[in-house]
């Protein structure tokens, strides 16, 4: 059954794109037209239908562009310039997505941040998924608005287990503990304020989210329809074209095989009932797909918790 959303709660829609090549198709993405062939196309179509059903017709206000999961795929200054121009042309504010990074990744990010900072556009945001990036932005580009990304929220999201825990109403305070972040504790909020962070972001967690963001004066975003389970720097598919002795380590070269392949993994039956059975792996990260029910729960959580931004991922975010 559709869950109605009060207009005043969800105020902002953001479209998230992760590849420079997607920018040429921005108008089609804004119309929520599936852009990928094959299985991915069917998934996109299902997700679009569920999101529109639960959240209403899109009211785009912002374009997210960049990479949260792999520093090698971080966009260059010229790519960010193109993305920013595309956003402005479409009447959208711009948000740069950044990933967890090594020192080399910080080096590559600095000129991008400097270019964005030079725009002096008060609506530009940077989503940081690494405390090192938070520190760089806050110290070197105080004019940029910092957003704490979904990778900074370390809540359990094991799709093998969490559905079973929810279904079984896990004992004591366990379920409550799984539904609350630590980022909203008073001591964390002081830290966020010190860095000028006014927004925190979340995956659409299987167990739900039990925090009133309105009451604590924090903006909050939820990402649909993909949530991440695990990510790491040793990329499985990225090693495909390397010699056997040089595969599966953080320094292994890659040929961006993540742009070529998506792996769908189907789980064996688990000892805990109710777990997810299908996982999507692209590059260095594994995701769960949110079905229509899960997206419906996101709408309910958003309404209850005061989440005021929906981030719609047009594709798997790698």
């Amino acid at each position: 059954m559709p869950i109605s959303m009060p207009e005043s709660i969800m105020t902002e829609w953001a479209l998230a794109l992760f590849r420079p090549s997607d920018l040429a198709d921005l108008p089609a993405h804004l119309r929520l037209e599936p852009s990928r062939p094959g299985l991915a196309r069917a998934r996109q179509a299902d997700a679009r239908a569920a999101v529109v059903d639960r959240f209403g017709p899109p009211a785009w206000q912002r374009l997210y562009f960049g990479q949260e999961f792999c520093e090698r795929r971080a966009p260059s200054v010229s790519e960010v310039r193109r993305a920013y121009s595309a956003a402005v042309s479409a009447g959208l504010a711009f948000t740069l997505l950044t990933s967890y990074v090594s020192d080399d990744g910080v080096d590559r990010l600095r000129p991008v941040l400097a270019w964005l900072s030079g725009l002096e556009d008060a609506r530009v945001e940077v989503v940081a998924n690494d405390w090192g990036v938070v520190r760089v932005v806050a110290r070197e580009h105080a004019g940029l608005r910092l957003v704490l990304g979904r990778l900074m929220n370390r809540m359990l999201r094991d799709p093998r287990i969490v559905p079973g825990l929810v279904e079984a109403r896990a004992p004591g305070d366990a379920l409550a503990a799984l539904r609350q972040p630590s980022l909203t504790a008073p001591v964390s909020r002081l830290l966020l304020a010190r860095f000028g962070i006014g927004r925190v972001e979340f995956d659409n967690l299987i167990q739900g989210l039990d925090t009133d963001f309105r009451a604590i004066g924090l903006g909050a975003s939820v990402y649909v329809p993909y949530g991440y389970v695990v990510s790491g720097r040793a990329c499985a598919i990225g090693s495909l074209n390397q010699p056997a002795a040089d595969q599966f380590h953080v320094g292994a070269a890659c040929r961006r095989e993540c742009l070529q392949y998506t792996v769908t993994r189907r789980a064996d039956p688990l000892p805990v009932a109710g777990g997810h059975h299908e996982y999507l792996e692209r590059g260095n990260t594994c995701f769960y797909l949110q079905d229509a029910d899960a997206i419906g729960r996101a709408a309910a959580v958003a309404s209850r918790s005061g989440i005021d931004r929906l981030v719609y991922q047009a594709d798997l975010p790698v």
């Binding site: 359990l156 999201r157 287990i161 991440y228 389970v229 695990v230 990510s231 720097r233």
Partner: peptide
């Protein structure tokens, strides 16, 4: 994976 980015039990 990266230990801090593995949200599994």
């Amino acid at each position: 994976f990266e230990e801090g980015l593995c949200h599994t039990l």
